[in-house]
């Protein structure tokens, strides 16, 4: 029978908590840059001008169909040589996950915008708004409300994907776990504790998103996926 010994993990609990903070930091920053970038990408993709819609479509499809780990390696190992910049694991992670989640957010924005009835555009035009005004004041506020559940789901996916940064030695929760498991020779306890930590954080967010979705459904709001 295995003897569980959590003392070694508890002694270094602050390391794991620091890792969790870093995980949340990367997730937050990737969302901060990823959401506006996703909006820009979706508007370009919806534009009539092909010189806008085609590159945007390519970027979206490319980042949706390639594995995030490959993207991270590309931005961390390849990009610095290509454009001669210094790349830290932290910057590489934020760049990768911002663009990667932007590609997914772009599709959510597109679905949301397209789900709005044509009459709303026509109504806005009828009271003298131009395209941008209609988009900003009439279409987007309605579309965003419908997109909230899909947004939350994507954000949770992003939080889980950030574990990949441990492979380029950024001190997120996963990295701290690897470090601690090697130092304490207690991989069973360390990885179990870390799995539980991820579970608690992600479970809370999922429950929150289920509740929000339920409330939106009750208020008669249709949602997009």
């Amino acid at each position: 029978m295995v003897e569980w010994n959590f003392l070694a993990v508890l002694a270094d609990a602050d390391l794991l908590l620091q890792g969790l903070v870093n995980t949340l930091k990367v997730t937050f920053l990737a969302l901060l840059f990823g959401i506006p970038l996703g909006l820009v990408l979706s508007l370009c993709r919806l534009a009539r001008a092909r010189f806008l819609s085609m590159p945007a479509a390519f970027i979206v499809e490319f980042f949706r169909t390639t594995p995030p780990l490959v993207q991270l390696f590309w931005f961390f190992f390849a990009l610095p040589i290509l454009i001669d910049v210094r790349m830290t694991p932290y910057i590489a992670a934020i760049v990768t996950f911002s663009i990667q989640s932007a590609a997914f957010f772009a599709e959510i924005f597109r679905g949301g915008i397209q789900s709005i009835d044509r009459g709303q555009w026509e109504g806005a035009q009828a009271i003298g708004m131009n395209h941008w005004q209609s988009l900003r004041r009439i279409i987007l506020p309605q579309a965003v409300k419908r997109m909230i559940p899909a947004f939350m789901e994507r954000s949770i996916e992003l939080l889980k994907t950030t574990t990949l940064v441990s492979t380029v030695a950024y001190t997120d929760l996963m990295f701290q776990a690897n470090d601690l498991a090697q130092k304490t020779f207690r991989p069973l306890e360390v990885y179990t504790v870390v799995a539980v930590m991820y579970f608690v954080v992600i479970f809370v967010f999922s429950q929150l998103s289920i509740r929000v979705e339920y409330r939106l459904a009750r208020s008669g709001e249709s949602t997009v996926r």
Partner: peptide, 23 residues
């Protein structure tokens, strides 16, 4: 379903690689 949907897949792989054999 809840356990495997609410933990990152990388954590699952590493758990099975390093922790599962000890258990």
């Amino acid at each position: 379903i809840e356990v495997f949907r609410n933990t990152p897949v990388l954590v699952q792989i590493i758990w099975f690689y390093y922790a599962f054999p000890i258990l």
